[in-house]
Computed example of a mutant assay.
Amino acid sequence: MMTATNEILQAPTPRILVVGSLTPPDASDWLKGKLKELSDGVFTALERAGAACLFVEASSPNCVPDELLSEVDGLLVLGGGDADPACYGQAQVADTMYAINPAADHFELGLIRQGAIDDLPILGICRGMQLINIAFGGELIQEIGPGCHNGNADNSLMVSHPVLLAAGSRLHSIYDTSNLTIRSAHHQAVSKLGDGLAVAARAEDQIIEAIEATHQRWIVGVQWHPEDALAPAQDFDKLLDAFIGAAASIQTRQLSL
C-alpha cells in the first residue's frame, strides 16, 4: 500500500484509489482502531487480488479529485462515520449520529461524482455505499433503530445476517446465488434511491443492503463489511475480482487510445 496526496502512482495495473476517513474528528480511539483494522482488511484483499493501491485520507486530502482520478483505474470508498445530513438536504434529527466530517464528505462525494463522469469502476463499502447514493441525489434514513443490522446500541458490534440479492443484478451475477450471509454494523440506510441506481440486495426487514448503477456503469455499493475478519474471504474476493476486472478493462481501453 502507498499513502500519498499529490504523488503520481507508479505501480503495476490495475491501479485502485482507496479513500476513507480513518481519523474523523471527535471519533473515539476505539473507532479509529476499528476503521484501521477494516481498512487493513481491504488493502490485504486488494493486494491478494493483484491490484496496486493508492490511499488518501479523506479527513485531510490536500489534493484535487480529478487529478487523483486521472492516475487510477478504479475508486474504492471505505466505511466510516456518518455523512452530514446537509449533504442530502436534511437537518440532523437523530441523536445517535457520530464522527460527522463535512470536509471528508465533500471530498469523497466529489471523487464519486467525478469518477462517474470519467466512467471509472466505483465500489463503496458501508459509508461508501451511502455516499454513492447521496452523490446521485439520494437520501438516507438517519436512524433505522434496533434490528438485525448491528449488535448493540452504539453500533460497535458486527453481526451476521442474510441478504437477498436481486435477480438480474450485477451482484447476483458475481455471486451466482440469490442468498448471501453478510457481516454488518450500521444504524443508517438508504431511503430515497439516487438517480440511475437500482437496489441490488435487501435484508429480511427490507432495508436496502446493496445498490448499483443501471445500464453499463460499474458502480456498486454494499452496506455490509465484506472485509471484516469474520466475513468469508472468498465472498470479498469474488466482489473484488469483478471490480478489479472492470478496472483492468478501463486501463486497457486507456492504453489503446
Results as ranks from 00 to 15, higher is better:
249 S>A: 15
65 P>A: 12
77 V>Y: 02
228 D>I: 05
193 L>K: 04
16 I>N: 02
227 E>K: 06
23 T>R: 09
126 C>E: 07
65 P>T: 08
240 L>R: 05
38 L>V: 10
227 E>Y: 07
252 T>H: 11
107 F>A: 06
17 L>Q: 05
92 Q>P: 02
226 P>D: 07
51 A>L: 05
161 H>F: 13
24 P>E: 10
107 F>Q: 05
17 L>C: 08
30 W>N: 07
67 E>S: 10
71 E>C: 12
26 D>W: 06
44 T>V: 13
26 D>M: 09
222 V>A: 06
115 G>K: 03
58 A>Q: 02
179 N>M: 10
124 G>F: 03
98 Y>R: 14
150 N>P: 00
68 L>Y: 04
241 D>T: 15
123 L>C: 08
111 L>A: 09
128 G>D: 00
241 D>R: 12
96 T>S: 14
220 V>T: 04
173 S>N: 09
151 G>I: 11
80 G>E: 03
245 G>Q: 09
247 A>S: 15
66 D>G: 03
226 P>M: 11
191 S>G: 10
221 G>Q: 01
124 G>W: 00
132 I>V: 11
44 T>N: 13
115 G>W: 02
64 V>R: 11
42 V>H: 04
136 F>P: 00
65 P>M: 11
247 A>G: 04
125 I>H: 02
243 F>L: 08
161 H>P: 06
201 A>F: 06
179 N>Y: 10
10 Q>G: 03
234 Q>A: 14
156 S>A: 13
12 P>R: 12
82 D>P: 00
117 I>F: 07
204 E>Q: 13
212 E>F: 11
130 Q>G: 01
195 D>V: 12
170 R>Y: 05
39 S>F: 08
39 S>Y: 07
